[in-house]
Design a protein around this nucleic acid. Structure first.
Lengths: 233, 233
DNA sequence: TTACCTCTGTCATCCCCCTGTCACCTGGGA
DNA sequence: TCCCAGGTGACAGGGGGATGACAGAGGTAA
């Protein structure tokens, strides 16, 4: 059992690590976002502190979610309702506010894992396990390195543009609704009427020079395409 | 979407019911444990108050867990660590203490359902069509990815066309009436006299090149067919 | 300041949905 | 076998709505 503990405070990390170890988990503790992203694919479940110094917590959470679908519990001092809602919408399975009670946290970990350890397994053959870039046509999306290459040349996308592309690339071939995308990336489905998503999709298409990289499913949402050549059935 | 709201306090039930209805859930509210147990099997998810007068909350939770495996969130005034741990260990997927914040509770409901729900329309008896595509002949309908393949090649259907096909594919072999299909997809049975359904069925047949994929039951409705070869009993 | 990103608003376009019509098929009755 | 009535398939056209393209305001970081 491999727990990934993302926590920059030494005392907190020590306390949590001890509690987890007592319950039979092997723990890898990291204190920086970059290390968290590097080890995400090894984790059986994740405890995430949103207050890291080197990257916004929500942003880290979204990036982790693209890299792995393991159970993830946010453990943080941020207790505003807005923070909690956004954290859960960004993909957290549970959200625990510091100071927390250890036994409760352990019970929550077990509850989340009970739901996610599907006996039939293989629920996540999808998300880029480890570091294999997603390829479609001559476009290469490296979810771990957060880079995009077209015909070998790196393309610089903005944060939102990359988020949208990475979200679609995490499950190639699947169609995602506008609401789902807005929920996961913006944390707000009520932006559905907004034009933001369209604008950023257009940005990805323009900067990559591959209009077919993101395919529109009219009236529903978007899907990762074949990289440009939009031939039909 | 069927939410089972187990709550004996009228004001609380009203507030919760309103919030759920605003988010598109249909709500059945019960105030007694016996009613909760009776309707448990219909629920798509459960909100459970532990403070009912006629049965100990934990005991009710355990009995509910035997009857149904739907996502269940405890919403209660009991805030002792011991209560929370016991509730989670008894099978609750989350535990929210009153007074709670509505938006947070809704986000927690979504988070739990995200982990437990089958991605697309099929919502009934959990007969394993969770992630496996439906196959008939050489046609493959992936309800999770919202894609359709014929002989391995992806076929692009419009929204309505896909909706009709997916609805039939969610229960292979069953015959569905025009009214039922219109009700579930259009939300309006009064379109029964309209030609829309026929047009979209024709679209599916034409685009897939499999006229037998959707079989007409004259005077009644439609049924998922065998993928092309139109022989039958 | 400067440059860039993000979001919003507007306009134009195109596709999809619905409807209407005609023809064909099916099933029942004479 | 023939006729009739209702239902369905095929096809075309109009309208509406979703999306793409573009511009500009506001915010943020360098």
């Amino acid at each position: 059992m491999h727990a990934l503990l993302v926590e920059d405070d030494d005392r907190m990390a020590h306390a949590l690590g001890t509690a987890l170890a007592q319950r039979g988990h092997s723990v890898r503790r990291v204190g920086r976002a970059s290390d968290a992203l590097q080890h995400a694919h090894e984790a059986e479940f994740v405890l995430l502190d949103l207050g890291l110094p080197d990257l916004d917590g929500l942003e880290l959470l979204r990036r982790l979610r693209v890299l792995c679908s393991a159970p993830l519990i946010v453990v943080t001092a941020r207790c505003e309702e807005r923070d909690i809602v956004q954290g859960l919408r960004a993909g957290a399975d549970d959200y625990v506010v510091k100071p927390f009670r250890t036994a409760e946290l352990m019970a929550r970990i077990d509850a989340v894992r009970r739901r996610t350890d599907t006996p039939s397994g293989s629920r996540d053959t999808d998300d880029g396990d480890g570091g294999e870039p997603v390829r479609t046509g001559d476009v290469e999306i490296d979810l771990a390195a957060r880079t995009v290459r077209v015909a070998g040349a790196e393309v610089r996308l903005t944060r939102r543009e990359y988020d949208v592309l990475a979200f679609l690339a995490a499950r190639p071939g699947e169609v995602h609704s506008r609401e789902e995308i807005l929920d996961r990336i913006w944390g707000d489905v009520f932006l559905a009427a907004s034009r933001s998503l369209d604008v950023h999709v257009a940005g990805v298409r323009a900067k990559t020079g591959r209009p077919g990289l993101i395919r529109t499913v009219r009236g529903f949402g978007y899907q990762l395409g074949d990289g440009g050549r939009g031939d039909g059935p």
